[in-house]
Design a protein around this nucleic acid. Structure first.
Length: 472
RNA sequence: GCCCCCAUCGUUCAGUGGCCUAGGACACCUGCCUUUCACGCAGGCAACACGGGUUCGAAUCCCGUUGGGGGUGCCA
């Protein structure tokens, strides 16, 4: 499903920084925003927060858009913060004019040295607060934070969260390069774009007091003076983090979790999206968790989201994926799996597809089921070989001999092959499939035996059987 | 160090004072089905971190302890 034309006042935004590919954590933030927009028929906004020119890359913006699209996450409006620097700069200038912000020329080393000399901890020490500096080289603009009182807000997921203002430092809002920083841009845009709900990762909670202070200050500026209905701050909902097995926040560097890679590994977007949704949230009706998105949207609510971090369990994702793969109509399956089986003759694959489909957890596993049909049998595991071929060693040679004999002139079609192979078993009073399967494929498991078998030439089959016979 | 947050089976979701001898799903184990595997079906294992309160009654409310995480940038 895609988002409908908005009919409510709800406005949410997903605001990624294009400093890497979309990873599962941000994808989940995007998804929860999207779910809320879908449920409330609100407006979904994609806002690219590329204020850090050094780390932002243009091509990543498109990559992120692609990954969102792959997941079926769409949006109504799109903005780039780099297009809006003048707006943020003006807001910062306005703060300076009104005495809410000031210039500071301290280097990071200076600050650090002073703090250490005083034996204190923390970041900036408000050194330039009252020095009355003007704009100059290597000078930043800092926001003057209150020294007393508390800033608190109600989080839809966490309840009331409050911060003592004196723990807030005078943070930088404009770099010495003149480019505004995240906090101003974020506060300005949320205000300007009329964002009603801020849904994002828990790692952003402690930016809330800063953003709120900035918002309040902006409300006092002439830019927003005449705007109606802005006074109310957005509702915040901070999503629990998604963590790895060490219970640490998923990180791109060590955890290998970009959405694009999941696509490459043969995960279905519907499965991915469905799984992501169950991390920190469950359907209200306590029904099955694997369900089409449009059944889930109506019961979605931000207030129902869990507080505790959730482990990203690839095994469970694979289970979801397997279910979705099995549910695919055959021709749909064929289309989706095509990129993963490009090496295999398409006629052959299409004939084998019904047997492969039900056994996959990921689409990229498809070729492994046909390797022995397309090429040589795999080198059997020592343990498996022994178990299959020598455990009942008096029978296997007989079985193989007789199978070779029967197959020499039997009609080359599945039913006939099955009859021949099983017939040997009946004659000898033993099972025959496993030794034959092992001889042909090098494995004890796989797709049904006789259909792929006819895809091989009779000589090839007989050669493999003889080779196995020689080994037992 | 300082600030903020979190705490139910191995994992995940449910449970918002009595329906809980705590439920579902994944994983794992055992059967059944099947001359392979997978699917399916039937079972099994397995948790309210600890200590104090409040209450007739606490997984659910309060306090503390412990443990874990996030933040602490001229990143977002």
């Amino acid at each position: 499903m895609t988002l409908a034309e908005p009919t409510s006042d709800v406005r949410v935004r997903f605001s990624p920084a294009p400093t890497g590919y979309l990873h599962v954590g941000s994808a989940r933030s995007a998804l929860f925003n999207w779910m809320y927009a879908a449920r409330t028929e609100g407006t979904m906004i994609l806002r690219v927060e590329d204020t850090d020119a050094d780390r932002s890359q243009d091509e990543l913006v498109q990559a992120i858009r692609d990954s969102l699209g792959w997941l079926g996450i769409d949006w109504h409006e799109e903005y780039r913060q780099s297009d809006r620097f003048d707006l943020y700069r003006a807001a910062a200038q306005d703060f300076v004019d009104r005495g809410l912000a000031y210039y500071c020329d301290c280097s990071q080393e200076d600050v650090k040295a002073r703090i250490e000399a005083k034996g204190e901890s923390g970041g900036y020490d408000s050194f330039c607060r009252d020095r009355g500096l003007g704009p100059a080289e290597n000078t930043v603009v800092r926001f003057r934070t209150p020294t007393e009182g508390t800033t608190s807000y109600d989080d839809l997921i966490r309840g009331t969260v409050s911060f003592e203002n004196d723990t807030l430092e005078d943070f930088v809002i404009v770099r010495s390069s003149g480019v505004p920083l995240f906090h101003v841009a974020n506060a300005y845009d949320d205000l300007d774009m009329g964002i009603t709900h801020v849904v994002r990762g828990e790692d952003l909670v402690n930016t809330v007091p800063r953003v709120l202070l900035l918002r309040q200050a902006m409300l006092g500026s002439s830019v927003f003076a005449d705007r109606e209905g802005l006074a109310e701050a957005p509702v915040f909902a901070h999503l629990p983090l998604i963590v790895n097995e060490q219970r640490k926040k998923l990180s791109k560097r060590r955890d290998d979790v970009s959405v694009g890679e999941f696509a490459d590994r043969g995960f279905l977007p519907e499965a991915m999206r469905n799984y992501l949704l169950t991390l920190g949230w469950g359907p209200r009706d306590e029904g099955d968790e694997i369900r089409p998105i449009d059944e889930l949207v109506p019961q979605f609510d931000l207030a129902d989201i869990n507080k505790a971090p959730a482990f990203f369990d690839i095994k469970k994702l694979e289970h979801f994926n397997g279910e979705y793969i099995r549910a695919l109509p055959l021709d749909d399956f064929l289309t989706r799996v095509a990129p993963f089986v490009a090496e295999i003759d398409s006629g052959l694959f299409e004939r084998m597809a019904p047997f492969v489909q039900g056994r996959l957890k990921r689409l990229d596993e498809a070729p492994s089921f046909l390797d022995w049909v397309v090429g040589d049998p795999r080198e059997p595991e020592e343990k498996d070989w022994r178990k299959t071929m020598t455990k009942e060693k008096d029978r296997v040679p007989e079985v193989l001999d007789l199978v070779i004999e029967r197959l020499a002139d039997c009609p080359w079609e599945p039913e006939a092959l099955e009859k021949a192979v099983f017939g040997v078993g009946e004659e000898l009073g033993t099972k025959t499939q496993l030794p034959v399967r092992m001889a042909l494929s090098g494995s004890r498991s796989g797709i049904p035996l006789f259909e792929p078998m006819v895809e091989l030439d009779r000589d090839v089959v007989l050669d493999r059987l003889r080779a196995a016979r020689a080994k037992v």
